[in-house]
Amino acid sequence: MLRFFRQIRQRLLTDNKFSKYLLYAVGEILLVVIGILIALQVDNWNENRKALAQENELLEEVQEGLISDLNLINLCISDHEQFIRSQDFIVQWIDQKLPYRDSLIPHFKHTFWTKLFSVKDAPYETLKVFGIQNLSNKELGHQISNLYDVVYEDLFYWQNEQKNNSLHFRNTHDQIGFEFLPDFGDGSLQLDLRPVNPKALQYNKAYLLNLKMTRGTLSIFNMQLKEARSQIKRTIEMIESELSAI
């Protein structure tokens, strides 16, 4: 091909057709420029395709992590609702000065029990290295950032509050007068509680106050879990929509 163009140039110069040669030279330069631009465009297209493939892979990993978070958060909410029911049951037993029954034993355990939530954030950290601002869908990027950096932060604040309150409440049980009972037949775990003096416990104002404080923070913590669950579901749906649109 180059030899063909060289022959044309030589023929034009030999025939003393300088103006035509000049036009030809300009045309040849334009062809070279167009070729370079096409090559750059193809290179950019390939790079964009690679970046999009990497973005999709990262979004899929984030989605998998959020599905894991969602499963755990559902377990936490379910357990906490059971714990709150137990706490309300004990409060009612105290307020109404009802007779003691051994059926209360499992409920006492739930007065300070908390199921903790841990986020699977490794995919999000990888996505931050890629650059959330580089995501094609800016709204999705904002949603992901808000979930991990705002919603989860609020959630963990109340989780720590509940954990500290529960630990403090748990540490008062030895002073108040509780005995720990095995809740498995082999006696390997002693988590069930029974008050040594149930009647005295019903008049222990400090115990009732600590119980209500623990219940209050657990309720707020559970509300934060439900808000996080809602945002997780929304984020999963947005990722699913983004991946299916490609």
Rank of each mutant, 00 (worst) to 15 (best):
M1W: 10
R3G: 12
Q7P: 00
N16P: 01
K17A: 13
K20C: 03
K20T: 05
Y21L: 14
Y21K: 03
L22M: 10
A25V: 14
I38Y: 11
Q41S: 14
N44D: 10
N46D: 08
N48I: 00
N48V: 04
A53M: 06
E55I: 01
L58N: 06
L59E: 01
V62L: 02
E64N: 13
G65Y: 02
N71H: 07
I73V: 14
N74A: 03
L75E: 15
E81S: 07
Q82E: 13
F83M: 06
V91H: 03
V91Q: 09
Q92N: 15
W93S: 01
Q96W: 02
L98N: 06
H107Y: 11
L116K: 14
F117Q: 03
K120L: 07
P123A: 05
K128Y: 08
F130M: 11
G131T: 08
N134F: 07
S136G: 04
L140R: 08
H142I: 08
Q143Y: 02
N146S: 14
Y148P: 03
E153R: 12
Y157E: 09
W158N: 07
Q162L: 11
N164V: 05
D174N: 13
F178T: 03
F178C: 04
G185D: 13
G185W: 08
G185L: 14
D186T: 02
S188I: 10
L189S: 12
D192T: 05
P198N: 05
L208M: 09
L208G: 00
N210H: 15
M213T: 12
T214R: 00
T214W: 02
G216W: 06
F221G: 05
K226W: 01
E227Y: 14
S230I: 03
I232E: 09
I232A: 10
K233M: 15
I239N: 02
L243G: 13
A245K: 15
I246H: 13
